[in-house]
Every structure is written in structure tokens, then in C-alpha cells.
């Protein structure tokens, strides 16, 4: 409780300094809007529904794209870890493509899919897939061979060993890969939404983009705030429980 209070006070101070700087006319209000304006924008856009709708659209794109990335990435990682051929081909490809910022896919996606949801999905998948694949591969490779040998002496074979030993043993790597994949998916989607104008729905990125076009910096900052908030929530709700489980079981530091 005391910790939470300290956190709240620290952030309140930060906002107060910000407001103070704005009131002191340190910068032009066009460059830095006051936190009150940002708050007003947020409340107004929640009232008229644009913010919630945009958030829902963005989360849908993100969730679906990320799920596809996960469903494809895990088996691909397994294939790469299991077979030398895939390691030399797919593994190399994944390693290379992973270094490519996924916004680079935007021109191609536009050309292939047009101004559609499909283009968005494609960019999100390209953003998250490869880091999940590579993390799964690394996870499987880092499983001590003695785990599988012990399982074999106890009568475990083939797929049973992979499911009950290799997969859980690679969990720490896989989860950090999933986290990274999630972060990459976010970045890709924001880039895609700012870059590609689709007619099927306004996401957060598009709101941010139009904030810029209208020179409404309180809108830009407000949307940035919402993006940060969703990112934090996702981390706390999605990944924290698994991470806590792993810390407890593996005995790694908190």
C-alpha cells in the first residue's frame, strides 16, 4: 500500500511539474499542451465513444495478429530446433527478417492487400512471428539433454517427451519470446495504423495520426497515454501470472 502511494505521489508530482511548465509559458502550448487539456480530450473522447471504439478496433487487430503469430511461431520454432534442414533455411530467414522493422512490410502489404484489415494483420504477424519462432528455437535448444534422457528411462517417448519435458523446460525462453513478440506486434500495428489509411475502422494509430494532421497535440499525447496504459495492462494481466509461476518454480530472482 505504501509503495502504491509513493508511486502515485511521484506521478502526481510529474504531472504538476508539467502543468507548472505549461502555466509558466515555458513552451508554446502548440508544442506542449497542458495535462488538463489532455485529460479533457480523454474524457470527451471516452464520452462520445471514439476512444473506446478505436481501442477495441486496435485490440482486435492486435489480438488476432498476435494469436496467428503465436500459432505459427511456436511450431516453426520447434521445426527449426528439431531438424537441421529447417535450421539452415527457415532459421536463417527468421533471424534475418527479425532484424527488419516490420513497418518495412507496409508498402508490400498495401500493394498485396490494399487498404484493408488484411494488410494490418499481415504487418502485425510479420512483426511478432519471427521473435516468437526464434525464442522457441532457443528455448528448445537450451533444454538440458539429461531431462529428455531421464524421461526416456521412465518410459516417455516421442511426442510425449516433447510435450511433457521439452516444452515445459523451454517455457522461460518461450515466454520471454512471447513477450517480445507482443511488444513487436504493438509497434508494428501502430506503424501500420499511422501509415495505412483503412476504411474499415479507426484504430488508436489513426486517431494519433489525425491528431497530428489537426495539430491537436493534446489528442496525440492522450492517445500515447492510452497506448502506454494498454501495454502496461497487457503485461500485468497476460504475462505477469506466467512469470510469477516461473519465478516460483525455477527459483529465479524476482
Amino acid at each position: 500500500m505504501k509503495r502504491a502511494l509513493k508511486t502515485i505521489i511521484a506521478f502526481a508530482l510529474l504531472v504538476a511539474v508539467w502543468e507548472g511548465l505549461v502555466l509558466a509559458k515555458f513552451w508554446s502550448p502548440v508544442l506542449l499542451p497542458s495535462p488538463v487539456d489532455v485529460g479533457k480530450y480523454l474524457i470527451d473522447s471516452i464520452r462520445d465513444g471514439t476512444l473506446l471504439k478505436a481501442s477495441a478496433i486496435t485490440m482486435k487487430r492486435l489480438g488476432l495478429g498476435y494469436a496467428v503469430g503465436l500459432v505459427l511461431g511456436l511450431p516453426l520454432g520447434l521445426l527449426i530446433a528439431r531438424f537441421r534442414f529447417f535450421q539452415d533455411t527457415l532459421g536463417l530467414l527468421a533471424l534475418g527478417v527479425q532484424t527488419l522493422p516490420s513497418v518495412c512490410w507496409a508498402p508490400l502489404a498495401l500493394l498485396w492487400f490494399g487498404q484493408t484489415e488484411a494488410a494490418m494483420f499481415f504487418i502485425v504477424i510479420m512483426g511478432s512471428l519471427w521473435s516468437i519462432t526464434l525464442a522457441t528455437d532457443a528455448g528448445v535448444r537450451n533444454v538440458p539433454p539429461i531431462y529428455a534422457r531421464a524421461a526416456r528411462t521412465m518410459g516417455s517417448r516421442g511426442w510425449h517427451t516433447w510435450l511433457t519435458v521439452i516444452l515445459p523446460a523451454s517455457l522461460p525462453f518461450v515466454v520471454s519470446g512471447m513477450k517480445q513478440g507482443w511488444a513487436f506486434a504493438w509497434r508494428s500495428l501502430m506503424a501500420a495504423e499511422i501509415y495505412i489509411t483503412v476504411l474499415t475502422g479507426f484504430g488508436l494509430g489513426q486517431l494519433l495520426h489525425y491528431g497530428r494532421e489537426l495539430n491537436a497535440m493534446e489528442q496525440v499525447i492522450g492517445i500515447m497515454f492510452v497506448i502506454v496504459l494498454i501495454g502496461l495492462l497487457a503485461d500485468k494481466l497476460l504475462f505477469s501470472p506466467i512469470e510469477r509461476f516461473m519465478h516460483r518454480r525455477w527459483g529465479t530472482a524476482k
Partner: peptide, 8 residues
Amino acid sequence: FLTWLPGL
């Protein structure tokens, strides 16, 4: 589990 099945 589901995602791993095809590879297995």
C-alpha cells in the same frame, strides 16, 4: 498444446 501438434 494445439500449436505444437502438427510439428509432432
